[in-house]
Design a binder for these strands. Structure first.
Length: 765
DNA sequence: CAGCCTCGAGTTCC
DNA sequence: CTCGAGGCTG
């Protein structure tokens, strides 16, 4: 599953018979076919078992696919061999359905990462200013080692373990209850009797170094790359007996849903978790200052080698749980915690080639092909090179990257895994540079379609201008279209759309919804006859596509893959307009305004250049106003544009990009063809019910009991929009002392105004 | 207008 | 996960 960074160990083993050496299927007689069918079925079944249960595949994916294809061919020619138990009938590899999905009642968070002393100082400062603490006021922060394992959420009801779920993507995890029950550190029943009736304990499953070595030396023939992979592989076993035989351990450090509070501070919570019968990390401590935190970090790093288990940093948390609640969440991380990572491991290797990939928006991304090298327990053979400037070692403004050293093919380069995941090139050894190595010439044309690749002013990436003509862009757009946050059609993943695109079955999103008409029952060419497909799998894909003809507006908008319109902007737009028709109409009406605004921006640019040439001060605002006046916009266009910009989170750049997409003939036609097949669902109303849900709020003046940031976060949690200035759309103004023009304007517009105490009453509710 | 925060886009491992 | 850039705030 994507997002799951569990790796599988590949043991030495007897390889599958090479498919190439086999005679053509057409030459087989019935007897030989049956024998081979049986052999291949067995092979595939064994491979499945190894892959899914043992976490130790003995054949490569390619070999596995070859086996399955060969089986298909045989079954096409000798249909009597196809039976319900045949591996070919078990379509789409059961990878995602091995464990039941469990939605987390409270999301399992990830943490913000920091690497430097400055990051730690900034974290503490941010917390202090958010809470509006006086400079001298005490602020306790806990520090604990960050265990390098995999996180697990354990749900207890009435003191009994009822469910264990992996983190998954943070919102939905996998049910591994049976396996969790076999781990000695995880109590099946809580100790004592003083626990909340519902209690979700969260922590880290890990394996100690000693146990890891023992496991790898056992005669199972399986070799795991590192303890983390071993722990992950052991926990995700179909057979709990296998998990039970693996020496897994567990540290508790956090919690999810709780029916009643059980502590007032983080440290107290840790002690309570011990009372409940959990192991907690003995190095956890309280810090009173940034100096304390850095000292704790340094001390824990010193102990790293002798701890006996892997850690990759130190986690800091605001100790007071009341403060934690006030600080709340950003989009994916809590404001009250920071993971202070240890420096990443590095390794030197040779850069063998530089390839250029073309993305969905046409961005040309250079990728380093490296001589394989082990970095932090993982073999790395590719690394990102970001962009043209990164390779050149110098930014557009002349600033130096890596001390100005450029990267050349043939160079010795130092590689590390940023955030322990993405391989990056950190340095170049000029002393080892081959004399014939030349500076890398970044292509000026798209390597996929040959169109010019242009770098716009102020942009760091070069983009292919081919648009939908470029096959790379077209296929990346399709992959995006079927991605999880977009249409998410079951059984139609990135790999399959790519294949269907290559074969000319799907050229654009609309084609997905006519797939059955063109390749379904009764057609000359049919999906069920494709390699690896059958009657059942084809029918279920068509059914999954049918289901997605009804699509929420936000998903549709995101799926279109318009530059700058991501998941959040799509949500904002959907909520702002409420329907596809309203959005489409607004964009069409606003088009002249978009054109005028672009012209105005160009006029501003020209004015800046002219001013510089003439040595006078630029007057951008006047140039813009003049250009707009000259355009003589119809009022409805100006209004529609203003309405678009007024949407929360939508600025001129995004609005322009959206407008361009809808005005581009080719793109618009493709969108219209798609939407003709769909029923677009309006955005759901927010579930929260509070006096301010769905309302637009403006804060002004000084807030004395809460900071601005805190008030905004709280209001948004209650389903309100927080705007910066008062307009006709404003529903409520919260005015503290010193409120000025905004309060006056609100009064003119007849908008309700409340003071901070009234606001606090709402915020608490 | 500058600085902060969040979002979008691209990428690696398999 | 990170970088760059867009949008908002002060």
């Amino acid at each position: 599953m994507a997002g799951d960074d569990e790796d599988r160990a590949v043991p030495a083993g007897e390889p599958a018979a090479p498919a190439a050496a086999l005679p053509p299927v057409s030459s087989l007689d019935a007897e030989a076919a049956e024998a081979e069918h049986a052999r291949l079925s067995d092979e595939v079944a064994r491979a499945n078992l190894a892959y899914y249960q043992e976490d130790a595949p003995f054949i490569s994916d390619a070999e596995y696919d070859a086996c399955k294809r060969r089986l298909e061919e045989i079954e096409v020619r000798f249909p009597h061999l196809a039976h319900p138990g045949s591996p070919t009938e078990q379509v789409g590899a059961a990878a995602d359905t091995r464990f039941a999905k469990i939605p987390h009642r409270l999301p399992m968070l990830s943490l913000e990462n920091g690497f430097t002393q400055g990051d730690v100082e900034a974290f503490v400062q941010r917390v202090r200013s958010f809470l509006n603490l006086a400079p001298g006021a005490a602020l306790e922060i806990t520090a604990e080692p960050k265990i390098d394992g995999l996180s697990l959420s354990l749900r207890y009801e009435g003191g009994w373990l009822v469910q264990a779920a992996t983190r998954g993507d943070g919102a939905v995890g996998e049910n591994v209850t049976a396996n969790a029950r076999t781990i000695a550190d995880i109590p099946g029943q809580l100790a004592g009797d003083d626990w909340p009736d519902v209690l979700e304990i969260r922590g880290e499953v890990y394996m100690s170094h000693v146990d890891f070595e023992k496991l790898n030396q056992s005669d199972s023939g399986r070799v795991f790359a590192n303890p983390r992979n071993a722990a992950a592989g052991s926990l995700r076993q179909l057979d709990p007996a296998v998990t039970a035989s693996r020496p897994l351990r567990f540290f508790a450090y956090a919690w999810g849903e709780v029916s009643a509070p059980f502590a007032r501070t983080q440290m107290e919570a840790v002690r309570r978790m011990q009372d409940f019968g959990f192991q907690t990390n003995p190095l956890t401590r309280i810090c009173a200052s940034v100096q304390d935190m850095l000292a704790a970090w340094a001390e824990i790093e010193q102990m790293r080698a002798t701890l006996g288990y892997d850690i990759d940093g130190v986690v800091y948390k605001v100790n007071d749980l009341g403060y934690q609640a006030r600080l709340g969440m950003r989009s994916t991380t809590p404001r009250w915690a920071l993971a202070h990572k240890f420096p990443a491991e590095r390794a030197w290797t040779r850069l063998e080639a530089i390839d250029i990939q073309v993305g969905r928006t046409g961005a040309l991304s250079p990728v380093a092909r490296l001589h394989p090298v082990t970095v932090g327990g993982v073999v790395v053979s590719n690394a990102t090179l970001h962009n043209e400037d990164y390779i050149a070692g110098r930014g557009a403004d002349g600033s130096e990257i890596r001390g100005g050293k450029d990267i050349r093919i043939g160079d010795w380069v130092e590689v590390y895994r940023a955030g322990d995941v993405i391989p990056k090139v950190a340095d170049v050894d000029l002393a080892k540079r081959p004399p014939e190595a030349a500076p890398y010439a970044f292509p000026a044309t798209c390597p996929e379609c040959g169109s010019p690749a242009i770098r716009e002013e102020g942009d760091s990436v070069r983009r292919c201008t081919g648009g939908l003509i470029c096959p790379a862009q077209a296929v990346e757009k399709l992959r995006h279209f079927v991605s999880r946050a977009a249409f998410d059609i079951e059984g139609l993943g990135a790999k399959l759309v790519e294949e269907l695109f290559r074969d000319g079955w799907i050229a654009e999103p609309a084609d997905i919804f006519t797939l059955e008409d063109r390749y379904g029952p009764g057609q000359p060419r049919q999906l069920k006859n494709r390699e690896g497909w059958g009657e059942k799998s084809a029918a279920s894909l068509f059914q999954a596509i049918e289901k997605r003809r009804e699509i929420p507006l936000a998903r549709l908008l995101f799926a279109l893959g318009i530059r700058h319109v991501g998941e959040v902007a799509a949500q904002d737009l959907a909520r702002h307009y409420g329907s596809w028709q309203a959005l489409e109409a607004a964009l069409d009406t606003a088009r002249p305004a978009a054109i005028a605004h672009r012209a105005a921006e160009e006029a501003v640019q020209a004015e800046r250049e002219a001013a510089q040439a003439e040595g006078r001060r630029a007057r951008p605002a006047e140039a813009r106003a003049a250009a707009l006046a000259q355009a003589d916009l119809p009022a409805d266009a100006a209004n529609a544009w203003a309405g678009l910009i007024a949407a929360d989170g939508i600025g001129p750049v995004l609005a322009m990009s959206l407008s361009d997409a809808f005005a581009n003939e080719r793109e618009r036609a493709a969108i219209d063809r798609l939407v003709a097949h769909l029923t677009v669902l309006p955005p759901e109303a927010r579930a929260t019910d509070s006096a301010i849900t769905g309302k637009t709020l403006v804060f002004t003046g000084t807030l004395e009991k809460m900071t601005r940031a805190e008030a905004k976060a709280r209001a948004e949690a209650l389903g309100a929009h927080v705007a910066g200035s008062v307009s006709a759309k404003t529903d409520l103004l919260i005015a503290g002392p010193g409120a000025g023009s905004k309060a006056k304007k609100a009064a003119e517009l007849g908008i309700k105004v409340i003071d901070e105490d009234e606001w606090l009453a709402i915020a608490q509710g």
